[in-house]
Design a protein around this nucleic acid. Structure first.
Length: 463
DNA sequence: TGATAGC
């Protein structure tokens, strides 16, 4: 559904509300009396909404699978009638009440019989907790086989999500989590006994091929970062192959911060009768993240710029994004040689190194991380106050990659905190890429110079 | 280009 459709649907709904008011407040003889909606109008409205409902709340667009059922939202976790152990787990994580998207999403996620969902919301709004909670509430701990599956695009994200499952489920006696990720090879003829499996597509497919578990017994299937998972060469085949083996009654949940129009259409073709929850484009303004660019004329100047920024980078924690593994390892090596302390995280490292670097960064033992798009999505480190695009995000054709830009700078400014993003612009092509990004999000990215350097530093201090 | 499978 396009934004225009949404606007139209919202108008219709407002109109409907007016007419309802008229029925209750005005008589036919009164001035401004409007006839209630006719049958045809009602049916037109329903058609327009395509069985979807626009919530009064402007930030959230909710298209319910069944438009006739009332739309519940909850203001507390207690209202969800969860197992006590699960509720304890939620509170122990410091979640006192549902986030904005959770208020509406959780009742739909926990409905019985289970309903599918496609959800889009900015990073840091509580998506992970929402689907983890769903998985935990639906698995039967007395059964020693996988009942919930979650696919993530990277090793790091799978570990992070699994950690949330473990922590939220820590009071559920007997709950176990399995990790289908690189390095965890499956022995022949072994059966997985964990109720929940988190993994990356390749290994997950490998496990299911070795019959380590039965995809037909899966009750909840989560596709995290769903847009990359169904749209990227390599991920797509593997994810879809797994998804197609699931049963009709398996609950399918697609989550992401970004979907372009063709991708969400494709998602709607794969997922049967989903509830769709989206944040509007213009709500993705990122206004808590201050964005700048720095002009450099060549690679040496880029290097000089990053070293000049180092003092600012290490105030809090920072992530430096490079386009390739090669650039990332070159930069990290050069900086280390020049006595700037940085850590490198990219796919060229082996998995044990990757896990340990990520752990060190999360524990703030490393303050500055040089990385590739492997860390652009989902990685959640609260103290990250600064993101540098050493290379601007572009796709395989060199075109601006706005989705990745949003994900990258979304590593900072999480949970409403303020953050700073700095983009290195090396030539006219980069400048055009940045202009396209500005246009796409309707933002203005200002030049960083001596005049506003202090303003930028102050931003790093606020919370 | 990046990520993602082990053989």
């Amino acid at each position: 559904m396009t934004d225009e459709n949404w606007a139209e649907a919202a108008d219709l709904q407002e109109n409907l509300a007016k007419k309802v008011d008229n029925i209750s407040l005005k008589k036919e003889t009164d001035e401004n009396y409007e006839k209630p909606l006719s049958k045809e109008e009602t049916s037109l409205l329903k058609k327009m909404l395509h069985n979807k409902l626009v919530q009064n709340n402007q930030e959230l667009q909710v298209q319910q699978r069944d438009p006739t059922s009332p739309l519940y939202s909850v203001k507390s976790f207690e209202e969800l009638h969860l197992k006590k152990e699960l509720l304890d787990g939620i509170f122990s994580m410091g979640f006192n009440r549902p986030s904005k998207i959770q208020e509406t999403a959780l009742p739909l996620l926990l409905a019985n019989p289970p309903e599918n969902m496609i959800a889009q919301s900015q990073s840091g709004t509580g998506k992970t907790a929402a689907f983890v909670l769903t998985m935990l509430s639906r698995c039967d701990i007395s059964k020693p086989y996988p009942q919930c599956l979650c696919l993530s695009p990277t090793y790091e994200l799978a570990l992070q999500t699994g950690k949330v499952v473990e922590v939220m489920g820590k009071f559920l006696k007997g709950l176990k989590v399995g990790y289908a990720v690189r390095g965890n090879r499956i022995q022949r003829n072994t059966s997985i006994t964990t109720q929940i499996v988190i993994g990356t597509p390749g290994t997950m497919l490998d496990w299911s091929r070795h019959r380590a578990f039965d995809l037909r017994k899966i009750e909840v299937f989560v596709l995290d970062e769903a847009d990359v998972m169904i749209d990227t060469q390599g991920f797509k085949d593997q994810s879809i192959r797994i998804q197609r083996q699931l049963t009709e009654r398996c609950q399918m949940l697609f989550f992401s911060a970004t979907y372009d129009e063709p991708v969400i259409k494709f998602a709607q073709q794969i997922v049967r009768q989903p509830n769709v929850i989206r944040l509007r484009r213009d709500e993705e303004t990122l206004d808590n993240i201050k964005q700048y660019f720095v002009r450099c004329s060549n690679m040496d100047q880029k290097y000089e710029a990053i070293t000049n920024l180092y003092g600012v980078l290490s105030v809090g924690q920072a992530i430096i994004f490079c386009h390739t593994r090669r650039t990332a390892s070159w930069l990290a090596k050069k900086m280390c040689e020049d006595k700037f302390v940085v850590a490198l995280l990219s796919g060229e490292l082996d998995v044990s190194q990757r896990a340990s670097i990520l752990k060190r960064f999360k524990e703030a033992q490393e303050r500055v991380l040089v990385t590739t798009n492997v860390c652009s999505r989902g990685i959640d480190v609260e103290q990250v106050t600064l993101v540098v695009n050493f290379d601007l995000p572009v796709d395989m054709h060199g075109r601006p990659d706005c989705e990745t830009y949003l994900h990258r700078i979304g590593r900072t400014g999480r949970f409403g905190k303020s953050g700073v993003a700095i983009n290195f612009v090396m030539n006219d092509r980069d400048m055009r890429v940045l202009q396209d990004i500005e246009q796409h999000f309707g933002i203005k990215v200002g030049s960083l110079d001596t005049d506003n350097f202090n303003e930028m530093e102050e931003k790093l201090g606020d919370d």
